[in-house]
Design a protein around this nucleic acid. Structure first.
Lengths: 156, 156
DNA sequence: ACATAAAACTTTAAGCTTGAAATATCTTAC
DNA sequence: GTAAGATATTTCAAGCTTAAAGTTTTATGT
């Protein structure tokens, strides 16, 4: 999957396979760099950052299932990550009157502050890691990836 | 990180952040689809597929550290995946005369056959999943991602 | 009202992942 | 030749991940 420098596939329809391999290598490279920096600089992890980023954008809170859908990860996964964030005091669960199955999850004040700091560093890192991609190319790439995505949005 | 449809960042230098978010969402979407199909159709996993793909390209075998570098994952990780593949008879470790610390890892005959079958299906899936990306766009995207990658190859 | 189904979550088991510590082997410098 | 360091790999603990099964609560059909 993460095929590399040596014998690349050739023939009809291989361009998409090659694209996928590059896409995956690029995102893994960046991801592992981010992971390392989050750990070293802020003693946190990418999944925690992802959850906090989602909650930061929703001050009124989110349901567990919203988080799961939004982050493209399973329900059970979110449970574990949120549990850990709660035990660290960065996130709170609030029972709801209307529906006792659900609870609104939101950042605590401490979580909000913490996230703002980390997010600023994160944005700088991305600027650095993608520095060689021109703003122009960045916009074009984003456009292509968006059209790909809309093709898949809401599947099953 | 996997930010989505609602308030997208704006301002100077946000194009790269937006690009990264799209890149990550695209690769996670495709990855999870592949994961599911590998499981359902062939009762295997993406990491196992990755290792077998690497070995398929190296009939003479690879060292554990080669695998680790090539796949962009940690050493200890490769140990576990290879252990499982060995126990399933798909991969073999061969001690080397020269250096007793290392062993050459290679596909067994069964592993080779098995991989060929799965890889054919895999290529079809990619063609399907990236079907809306034109071959032309695929080549352009690949080019941009390649230049990004060479910028990072061999860091640290 | 009451049974049945649906929805929202959590729990569980198995496997993936990392970074760090531990082992074993080889290489280098005296 | 031997101690010190470098390499290659495995082991370990903690956390992430998923699919499937289980729990609790709400909604629906009769």
């Amino acid at each position: 999957m993460v095929a590399g420098p040596l014998p690349m596939p050739s023939g009809p329809g291989k361009d998409r396979l090659r694209l996928w391999i590059r896409l995956l290598r690029a995102s893994r490279t960046i991801e592992s760099e981010l992971r390392e920096r989050l750990k070293k600089e802020f003693d946190t992890t990418l999944p925690r950052f992802d959850v906090m980023a989602a909650l930061y954008r929703a001050p009124e809170g989110m349901l567990m299932s919203d988080l799961s859908r939004f982050l493209l990860v399973s329900n059970g996964n979110v449970t574990g990550i949120v549990d850990r964030l709660v035990s660290e005091g960065l996130v709170a669960r609030a029972r709801r009157n209307g529906d006792r199955r659900t609870s609104m999850v939101r950042l605590t004040e401490e979580g909000t502050k913490s996230f703002a700091t980390i997010a600023a560093a994160h944005e700088g890192w991305i600027g650095e890691l993608l520095g060689k991609v021109s703003e122009e190319d960045a916009r074009r790439l984003t456009g292509m990836l968006t059209s790909f995505r809309s093709n898949w949005e809401g599947r099953e």
